[in-house]
Simulated scan of single mutants.
Amino acid sequence: MGPDLHRRLTAELIGTGLLVTVVVGSGIAAQRLSPDDVGLQLLQNSMATFLGLTVLILLFGPVSGAHLNPVVSAADWLLGRRAGTGLVGREVIAYAAAQTVGGFLGAVLANLMFDVGVAEVATTERTGAPLLLGEVVATAGLVAVIFALARTHRGALAAPAVGAYIGAAYWFTSSTSFANPAVTVGRMFSDTFAGIDPASVPGFIAAQVVGGALGLLLVVYLYPGVAAAARDAVVPHRPHREAS
């Protein structure tokens, strides 16, 4: 593993960790500040996530692309593998591992800051076809937005656009838009407003994978030649390509 990949994996681990810290930490704060108003809690949580995700993409995008999401990394690999762009096989596995570890550490950090039990596991059930459909929709839209921007050379808009999409999807999807397996795993380790119980996690991740595939099919249909732009997701970056 060369130094460039080390830097990219570090960026993905820290970036995903901080994303989960933003989601979980703002969820805990919202629950404490507005204990009797779930709608206000969701507003506070979604606004913090929108702003935090925007900043994280700006910070880590030039290093790793700021995927911060195994579905996005897998889509990048699928699109670019024939065109020789995007991640190679071992990189996408490494990205996903770094993102997942980061998600767990991000939840632990939020729990420590708010003096919540570090070893607690979420008990909030998130099951049923409507919620899973919400995850399919949320993830499909996320993937479509990211690669449409890359294909049309509007990567400079990725940070606010992706942040705005996730912030909006908190409200227009029944699942409140997890749309990210690493974030889903991280949120399993916080028994708070933002948590998800372990039994609900496999269904959510399966829905996210389906949504990612549908989003990819949509963007390939709407934007022919999108494979050439795989290396520009989420933010244009030019890492040294190491031997696969």
Rank of each mutant, 00 (worst) to 15 (best):
G2Y: 11
G2E: 14
P3M: 13
D4T: 15
L9S: 03
L9F: 02
T10D: 05
A11W: 00
A11C: 01
E12W: 03
L13W: 08
G15R: 00
T16I: 08
T16C: 09
L19S: 01
L19W: 11
T21C: 14
V22E: 00
V22I: 14
V23Y: 07
V24Q: 08
V24W: 04
I28H: 05
R32I: 10
R32H: 14
S34I: 04
P35F: 13
P35H: 10
D36H: 10
D37V: 09
V38C: 09
G39Q: 13
Q41H: 06
Q44W: 11
T49M: 01
G52Y: 01
V55Q: 06
V55E: 01
I57T: 01
L58W: 15
G65R: 01
H67Y: 07
H67I: 00
L78C: 12
L79R: 09
L79Y: 04
R82Q: 14
G84H: 07
T85Y: 12
G86I: 01
G86Y: 06
G89D: 08
R90E: 04
V92A: 10
A96Y: 02
Q99C: 04
T100A: 12
G102F: 02
L105V: 10
L105S: 12
A107F: 05
A107H: 05
V108G: 04
G117P: 00
G117S: 13
V118M: 11
A119I: 09
A122R: 07
T124Y: 06
T124S: 14
E125T: 14
R126E: 07
T127F: 06
T127E: 09
T127S: 15
G128V: 13
G128L: 06
G128Y: 05
A129R: 10
T139D: 03
A140F: 03
A148M: 12
A150H: 03
A150K: 02
R151E: 04
R154M: 14
R154Q: 14
A156Y: 07
L157H: 05
L157Q: 10
A158N: 02
A158T: 15
A159S: 14
A159G: 03
P160R: 01
P160V: 00
A164S: 12
I166N: 04
I166A: 01
A168R: 01
A168C: 09
A169S: 11
A169R: 00
Y170R: 13
F172Q: 10
S174A: 15
S175I: 02
S175V: 03
S177A: 15
V185F: 08
M188W: 03
S190Y: 00
A194I: 09
D197W: 03
V201N: 07
P202I: 05
P202C: 08
F204R: 10
F204N: 15
A206V: 15
A207M: 05
L214H: 06
L214K: 11
L214T: 06
G215W: 05
G215F: 01
L216D: 08
L216W: 02
L216G: 09
V219Y: 00
L222G: 13
P224L: 08
A230R: 08
V234K: 04
V234T: 15
V235D: 00
H237M: 07
H237E: 13
H240L: 12
E242D: 10
A243W: 08
S244Y: 08
